[in-house]
Structures are given as C-alpha cells and as structure tokens.
Design a protein around this nucleic acid. Structure first.
Length: 817
RNA sequence: GCCCGGGUGGCGAAACUGGUAGACGCGCCAGACUCAAAAUCUGGUUCUGGAAACAGAGUGUCGGUUCGACUCCGACCCCGGGCACCA
C-alpha cells in the first residue's frame, strides 16, 4: 500500500476484498451464537440523506462489533418500496411508479455499497416484488378466515375537486395540497385488522422487553391506554334506546349536567333534521382534518340538540349537545360531561352557561375553587345523595354496582387503541386480495390465484388510482359462484409491508407460505435500529404481526425485536430531514470528497445515537484528517522496523503508561459498543490512544512493541466505524487475516494497575488542591497530607473541621464551619 | 391539547451509579516550516479579574434536598418527535 493515504483507492480495494471473501454472507451453519442485526429499511426516495447514513452506519457498527465478539451475524437490506412519493412523482412527471422506484433503489444500493456497509445482499428484496406481497396477501386471507379482518365505515379526508382521498400530510390548512379545495370528512367502508384483540398482550409484554428504551415502552403503554371504567346507559325518553358513554370516573356521575355527542352521531343527525342550527354546526364539523392533533387543539364548540336523555341514577333530564371535541371513532361517539371535575367540560360549561355542580370535595388540604377551574383529583363525594361521604374509590364500586343492578351500566376495561384501518384508496401499494360479489358478498381470493399482481403498465389521468378505472384489473369472475364480480381496488397501508419484512429476510426465497423454519433460527431480531419517529406505529404493528405469525404457527417467539436502538433525528437548518431537504442533506458530495470512512466516523462522532442533532459538514474534515494521521502514524511506526514480542517488564515508564492507555481503551470501547451504545466516545477513545502513541517517544524496543500493540488495538477498536482504512493498515502491519474475521482483544488487567493516583482536595465542596498518593494509601495518611496542602490551609485555617468525607481514589472533602 | 425526549464554551459534545464541569473534535488565536500560500506540526482557547499563582461566577429559569447537584425533587420557559392516511 502506498505511503500517502488515498481514501477512494483504499475503500475500493477493501470493498473488493470483502466481496471476494463473501465476508458478509450469512448462514445458519455459521460458527457462534446467531446475531440478527437490522436497521429499518428505507423508502427508496431517490438518494440517501444524512439520516440514512446515520442509521445504516450505526447498524453496521453494531454488525461489525458483534462479529468481532464472535457472533454469527446476519445484516440484511431491502426496500420499503410502496408509498405515496412514487405516486406523486408519477402524477407530476408521468413516470410510472414501478420504474421510478427501481431506479431509485439501484442508485441508493450503489451509495450503500460505497459506504461499505457489511450487508448480505443475497437477501435483498423490495416490498413491491410480487414474491414478497404474495405472502402478505396470503396472510391477510388467513386472518380473514380467523375473523381478525372486518369491514367498517371510517372517516377519510375527501378532496371534492380531485375526487380523491387525501393523506393527512396532503391536507394543508384544511385544503387539498393540489386542488386547494376545502377538504371534507367523508365516511367510507374500509378493511380493518383487529389489533384490539391483542391489546392486552401488546401492553403486558412491554414489561418483559428489557432491551427497549423506557421512553418507547412508555409511549406504547400510553398509546394502548388501558383504563378501568364503566359503560353507562342514559335512557332516551319515549324510546327503548339508550345513549351509552364510557367513563373512568363513575364517582362523578351525579355531577353530570349534560352529555355531548359527535357530529356524526345518530342523535346529532336526528337533531339536524329539525334544527337548522344543529345542521349548520354538523356541516361545519365536516371541514376538519381527521388528525387527532387538530381535534385536540381546535376551539371547543357545540350546540344544544334540543334532545335530552335521562340520568340513570337521578332520573333527571340531561341536555344533549353536539360538540366538536367528541370523536365518533372513539368508543361510542358520546361522552358524559361533568364540568365540576373535568377541565375541558368546565370550560365548555362556562362558555355556554351550563350548570357546574360539585360532587367531589378534596379529601386533604388540596385547593378547590370551582369558580376558577375544575377539581379533577379524587376525593370524597358530596351532593350525591346516599353516596355522600364515600371516597372516590368506594363510590366507583358503589355506583358501578348500582348501575349494574338497574341494568344501566357495566364495568369494562377499555383500551385507547383502535383497530387498524389498512385500506388505502391508492394505486402504488399491495392489492387487497378480496372480491366483492353481488351474490356471495365478500370472497377472499383463493390461495391458488395469489398473488393478485399490481399492474405496472399504468398511466395516471388526474390523481385518482388508475386501478379504479382499469377493467382488466377489477373485472373478475367470482371464485364462489362464477358470476361477474368486482375486485377490491384499494391497496394496503404500507405499514403492512414493514410489519413482517424482518422475518422474510431470514428466508427471503421461501414459498412455503410466508417464511420457513430459517425464520426461527434468525428471529427475533437481536438488535433493531431505527428512527425515533417509528417509536409507536411501526413498532406496534410489527409486534402485532409477530404475534399473528406466531398464532399462525410461522414463528415461535412472542416478540420480534429483543433490543431496540432508537435514533434521534438528523436535522437540517433546525428541521426534520426529509425527501425535500436540499444538497446539504446529500451525502454523495461528502463521499466523493472525503470517502466513506471520514463520513462514517464524523457521523458517529457527532453525537450519541439516541440524540437528535443538527448535521453540519464541519466534522467530516476533522475525521478525514484523523484517518490521514492514523495512516501516517502506522507508516512511521513501520519505518522503525520489526518489533520483538512484548514483555511488560522491559517497558519504560512512558511505555507502561501507553500500555495502560491501550488496555483502558479496550475496556472502555467494549462497554461503549456493547452496553452503552455510545459510539461517539469510542471515536474519542481512539483519538486519545493515537494522540498518546504520537506523543510517546519509544525509549527502547519494548516501547516500540507497546506502540505496535497500541496501533493494533486502535485499528481493531476503530474498525466497526471506519472499516476500510483500518483494514488496509491492518494488512500493512503484516496481519494476514481480515479484520472482519478477527476477534476483539482481551484486556490485560495487570496493565491497568496504576501506582500513583491523583486525589482532589475540596474544602466545603470547592476544589482547593490536588494530591499524588499511592493507590493503596490509607485514609488517615491521605487526610493528613490533604490538611497539609498549602492552599487547603488557607481555607481551613482558623475554622473548625466539622467533617471529612473521603471517596477512595477520587476525592477528599473537608467540611469547615 | 395529550404522550415521549432534549436544553452544558463560539460550535458538535464528554462527565456512565450524586464526587475534579468542558475529555475528544471543529472553529479561532499565536508560533514553527515556506519566497508565499495550502497542507502539516507545536502551544493556547468557558467567562470575569490577574503577568502568574490563584480567586469569583458558571450546565435553560426559579426554588429545594445534600458535606457535595449537569446528575435527585418541585414549578416554569424554550426546542424536537409522535398523535392512527408521510414513511
């Protein structure tokens, strides 16, 4: 290898070496415990952005570290290829989504290869491959047979001009992004998966996911949202019907002064027929996004319907309001309102002059002023007849029992989690394998007719899915009766594809349904790496799918991801990096200028993985400089000739110091890679080690042997992060084996022993001096030495020593007063 | 609005279990090399005062616990992620 460092030549040659040695081809028969290392596959948006570079470098660092630790590692890569952007590109530029996607994949694959990721490319697939979505369709029909799939009406954003359904993202300020038309809420029949059947298991198993960050588990817990409450029936006068609401606070039932229903609720519709005001309000509610954030931040408004219901305990009539903060898709679409003890109800009641009744008083000294705000804590019941004096908890049971006795209530465990709507009125997705027959109703596509292939020779006329007008696609014979029937033209939510791809990587060519037994060797994924933005939806759906596959007998484990690393966002100009970020976000220019090792090292060095940070190019120059320095350091060392076998007894003091640093670095980096997942400090540690090698002038041949050991260590330790330059220098040091096939070095504990340690002396918690003491010096001697220190004397003199606190090996704090 | 994070020099950060705040790097300043520049090397670099020794202040804000707080507790401010059709 040449004397000057040429990153591009080095990287090309080393990548070829890996290719020839098939270094990253994974096999079930490999030596060592299996380790499935997976980074969330990308959407093929066109080119990699810095967020991708971060994610896949982190994944590759884990991959290469685990190899050094002797694991049989599999790191695959694929493409989450269905989705909106391809369709938008097609509409905008007339390029068919399939070819646009294929081109993007080819380009991005090349970029990943240039970055030197140790991926087993033989397992690659894209979710738009019929070989992949075939099994998704097969699985859906199995779930249908099991009763886990159903059809129900649900609300979508409707663009009345383009006559199409919009994603939340495509609604800007209440208007369609393309047409500018005011978006309407519209109900449509859609396919749903019964994720709520698994709510309890999805929640309870979180407690066993020890390798997941607490924050993510907490987000999932809150999302699933288990609560204990009561369904309460409010009889509707002059009918046999009741209006059912769910509440977690039945103790406040006697404080209910009205009930509120959603604009889509049957009672609201009934009222709208006779009241123009109600009709106008219901109509106004149609121009609202479906996103919860919009609903939660909207100004709370409502109108009385003129209807009333009967309070189930007091028998008094309660007015029914239509309110914009009640959602039809949550529970029954109706809530009871207790303005005295719920802040939202309090504000609504204040605004519209509705009665506010106190039924809970504080059980302790807590402040309670219903003229200022609602009292939302638990307490003791008042103004509640026979329930007065009970605690909230006692009243919960007593009132629930009373309602149950009257047949007007039932205790129920409720989940906030809603069933998963998987229908999308779009073209570029996996066709839903269902057929609508006038006579037979819903008929799943028979197994032998799968896959239902998505036609790729399509032209977009306007923005609607071409499938809806493509007779060759939708016109089919009913598999049941043979009569003409209509194929479903909706496609799946793309979260369907990303919910089981990790299992498919284990057996990418399986055509026994879905996956084969190799999935039981590789799954669960040992370490899953991806962006924090996926903390809830993707991970929850994938966990759900894993349990569905388990119950189908396809996998044996309960959870798909053993350990989880959630990456912070890479920001550009303070904003989330996206497909629309400009050139600054494009790693290609950096790659061309500095090479992969500098880009990878700079990315790892910039911040710990879980932290969001603003990307800037500045750090890359510095790490390119470091790669060069490392190169020169090794070559200067080699110019000194061969070194003898290391014998620690022959080291100078500086040599011993270097050797201590070497073994400290091994221990520290091992912990940082394996436990802490702090790769930025690994880079720092290698910098420090190399700085010391450069500063240490060898006094003898043994010192040179220590320098050799330090350099070998630096190369192994850095190799997961900067795999090319370290491999090239490894060979220059005369090592015949590849670094990727090497083993993590052992720490020599005897090298860590330090005879003298520095001790900090504090007076009243402030540093006033430093001592050099023997590492095994006893407390009394250290204390005496500390009190004799000149600067310490200045602060202690004339005062009484009240206390002396010693932290062995660290500090001594003298408390004076 | 709700749930989950974050806030430390000019900048990215480190300080892991309550024990030296600012490791490592970027930038900047000075010096060496050079006709010169780039590159490279050496030294300095939290702020204030001081030639220095050293002193005072300092981890978003305010308060608390402690011999000792970036770290624990309470209240608040600001920024980011998610909120079910972006992926």
């Amino acid at each position: 290898m040449s004397a000057t460092y040429d990153p591009h030549a080095v990287e090309k040659s080393v990548q070829q070496t890996w290719e020839e040695a098939a270094s990253f081809r994974a096999s079930e028969s490999g030596a060592g415990d299996k380790f499935y290392c997976l980074a969330m596959f990308p959407y093929p948006s066109g080119q990699l952005h810095m967020g991708h570079v971060r994610c896949y470098t982190l994944g590759d660092v884990i991959n290469r570290y685990q190899r050094l630790k002797g694991r049989n590692v599999m790191q695959p890569m694929g493409w989450d290829a269905f989705g909106l952007p391809a369709e938008n590109a097609a509409i905008k530029n007339g390029i068919p989504p399939a070819s646009w996607t294929r081109d993007n994949i080819a380009y991005m694959r090349g970029q990943m290869q240039a970055l030197g990721f140790g991926i087993d490319w033989s397992r690659e697939f894209a979710t738009c491959d019929p070989d992949y979505y075939h099994w998704e369709q097969w699985f859906f029909t199995k779930l249908y047979e099991k009763g886990l799939v159903y059809r129900k009406s649900s609300v979508v954003n409707w663009d009345p001009v383009d006559q199409t359904v919009l994603a939340n993202e495509q609604v800007v300020d209440g208007r369609g992004w393309r047409s500018g038309a005011l978006v309407e809420r519209r109900e449509m029949p859609q396919w749903f998966l019964k994720i709520t059947d698994y709510a309890e298991e999805l929640l309870d198993e979180l407690d066993r996911l020890e390798g997941w960050p607490e924050s993510v588990k907490s987000m999932q817990r809150n999302w699933i949202g288990r609560s204990q409450g009561v369904d309460i029936d409010f009889p509707i006068p002059d009918t046999d019907d009741t209006l059912t609401v769910y509440t977690t606070r039945p103790d406040t039932l006697l404080g209910a002064t009205y009930v509120a229903v959603a604009a889509e609720h049957p009672l609201a519709r009934r009222a709208a027929q006779s009241s123009p005001e109600v009709a106008a309000f219901v109509d106004k509610c149609r121009n609202r996004k479906t996103a919860e954030a919009d609903v939660a931040t909207v100004e709370k408004e409502g109108v009385p319907t003129g209807l009333s219901v009967t309070h189930p305990l007091s028998g008094e009539p309660l007015p029914v309001w239509v309110a914009n903060f009640v959602l039809m898709e949550y529970g029954s679409g109706a809530v009871m309102s207790v303005p005295g003890h719920d802040q939202r109800d309090w504000e609504f009641a204040r605004k519209y002059g509705i009665r506010i009744v106190q039924v809970i008083e504080p059980a302790d000294a807590e402040a309670c002023d219903l003229d200022a705000e609602a009292f939302v804590s638990y307490g003791r019941l008042v103004n509640s007849g026979s329930y007065d004096g009970l605690s909230s908890a006692e009243a919960f049971d007593a009132i629930a029992a009373a309602l149950e006795g009257k047949g007007l209530g039932r205790r129920r465990t409720n989940y906030r989690l809603r069933d998963w709507g998987v229908s999308r009125q779009r073209y570029w997705g996996c066709p839903i394998p269902m057929i609508h027959c006038d006579d037979c109703g819903i008929v799943p596509v028979p197994e032998e007719d799968l896959p239902v292939r998505l036609p790729t020779d399509v032209t977009f006329e306007g923005v609607r899915s071409p499938l809806t007008t493509m007779e060759s696609f939708y016109a089919v014979d009913c598999p049941g009766c043979g009569k003409r029937a209509r194929r479903e033209t909706d496609t799946f939510d793309t979260f369907m594809e990303s919910s089981w791809y990790y299992a498919r990587f284990a057996s990418p060519d399986a055509n026994t349904p879905m996956v084969d037994d190799r999935a039981n060797y590789w799954t669960p994924v040992d370490h899953y790496v991806g962006g924090i933005e996926h903390a809830i939806l993707h991970l929850l759906y994938a966990r759900f799918f894993h349990k569905l596959m388990r119950d189908q007998g396809l996998v044996r484990s309960d959870e798909p991801f053993t350990r989880l690393l959630m990456l912070g966002m890479v920001l550009m100009d303070g904003r989330k990096m996206s497909k629309s970020s400009g050139d600054a976000a494009n790693p290609q220019a950096l790659l061309d200028k500095y090479g992969a090792d500098a880009v990878r090292t700079a990315m790892m060095f910039a911040a710990p993985p879980d932290q969001s940070f603003e990307w800037s190019e500045a750090g890359v120059e510095g790490q390119a400089r470091f790669c060069r320095r490392l190169w020169n350091l090794v070559h200067e060392h080699l110019a000194g000739g061969d070194v003898p076998a290391l014998d620690p007894a022959g080291l100078s003091e500086a040599g011993r110091e270097l050797r201590r640093k070497t073994h400290e670095t091994i221990a520290r980096a091992d912990d940082d890679y394996g436990r802490r997942l702090m790769f930025n400090t690994v880079v720092s540690a290698v910098h420090e080690l190399c700085n010391l090698v450069g500063r240490t002038e060898p006094a003898n041949d043994q010192d040179r042997a220590a320098a050799r050991e330090a350099l070998r260590t630096a190369l192994i330790v850095l190799s997961p992060i900067a795999p090319h330059v370290t491999q090239a220098l490894w060979r220059d040091l005369g090592e015949a084996s590849l670094l990727v096939a090497s083993r993590w070095p052992e720490v020599d504990e005897s090298a860590l022993v330090q005879e003298m340690v520095e001790l900090v002396v504090q007076v009243n918690g402030k540093v006033r001096g430093r001592l050099q003491v023997a590492h095994d010096a006893d407390d009394a001697a250290v204390r005496e030495q500390a009190l004799a220190n000149d600067n310490v004397v200045r602060f202690v003199d004339g005062k009484t020593v009240r206390k002396v606190i010693t932290v062995p090996g660290k500090l001594i704090n003298i408390v004076v007063g």
